[in-house]
Design a protein around this nucleic acid. Structure first.
Length: 254
DNA sequence: CTGGGGAAGGGGCCC
DNA sequence: GGGGCCCCTTCCCCA
């Protein structure tokens, strides 16, 4: 993935990278500018994929604990559940938690007692709902948290939120309008405006705005280059240079 | 063409 | 769980 995939705008025409076409135009749907870098934005439901707002409906620990604080562990919930006495569960909120374990003790409107929270389809028996979920909705839900902007899927909502930021780019430079996914990326960018270079080389006193760039620079002082071609044994200070060397066709001699 | 600097993105770790 | 930070990596540009 081109790194520029996450960057919305290039205001410097002279240095506009020749990036490949974006895979998705969805980025354009992101808000253009924020006055400041706000706190992490939790995207609206239309931004997050269905999985984000409808996490797996299997009887996992998270769902269980949210519904039944006393019950721990998805194993118990999955079916065996010896510790989970379903008959003891309250039925007061059966409508809202219809995907939860059944409450056999209660007897509300029979035909719609068991409703799938994914597709809202109702079943008169828990077995019917279970079968439905197993065949249809659980299969989708297990995909976990998917991004609506791209194909990516994540196992946790936190990871997805982090990823979504690379689409929404909430951190915007006030000076040039360039947008970034994370505050520290913006910080680094701002240094390009201010000229601040807090990282200096102990060998030559040359200063850098980015620590990684200093690290790369330090390689130039090193007699032993870190990256070596397996074919010709030629060494390079950077992996990218080695890659370039290999891609252009190592002659095998040096 | 090569090497180096600049800029930026993502994952992972720690608090 | 979220934010900050570090590290690694990649890409572009220029001398």
């Amino acid at each position: 993935m081109p790194r520029s995939f996450l960057v919305k705008k290039h205001f410097s025409a002279s240095k506009k990278p020749n990036y490949s076409e974006l895979e998705s135009q969805a980025v354009l749907a992101a808000p253009l500018l924020y006055e400041t870098c706000p706190l992490p934005v939790i995207p609206p439901p239309e931004v997050l994929g269905p999985g984000a707002y409808y996490p797996p409906l299997v009887w996992d620990a998270g769902l269980l604990s949210s519904l039944f604080p006393g019950a721990a562990g998805s194993e118990a919930a999955a079916g065996a559940a010896p510790a989970l006495d379903l008959t003891a569960l309250s039925s007061e909120d059966d409508e809202g938690k219809s995907s939860g374990p059944p409450s056999p003790a209660s007897a509300p409107a029979a035909a719609e007692r068991f409703r799938c929270a994914q597709c809202a389809k109702a079943y008169s028996t828990f077995a019917g709902l279970s079968k439905h979920k197993q065949l249809h909705c659980d299969a989708q839900a297990r995909k976990s948290f998917s991004c609506k902007y791209c194909e990516k899927e994540y196992v946790s909502l936190g990871a997805l939120k982090m990823h979504i930021r690379s689409h929404t780019l909430p951190c915007v430079c006030k000076m040039c309008g360039k947008a970034f996914s994370r505050p520290w990326l913006l910080q680094g960018h701002i240094r390009t405006h201010t000229g601040e270079k807090p990282f200096s080389c102990t060998h030559c006193n040359r200063a850098f705005a980015d620590r990684s760039n200093l690290r790369a620079h330090l390689q130039t002082h090193s007699d032993v280059k870190k990256y070596q071609c397996k074919t010709c044994s030629r060494t390079f200070s950077r992996m990218s240079l080695l890659h370039k060397h290999e891609e252009t066709g190592c002659s095998g001699s040096r």
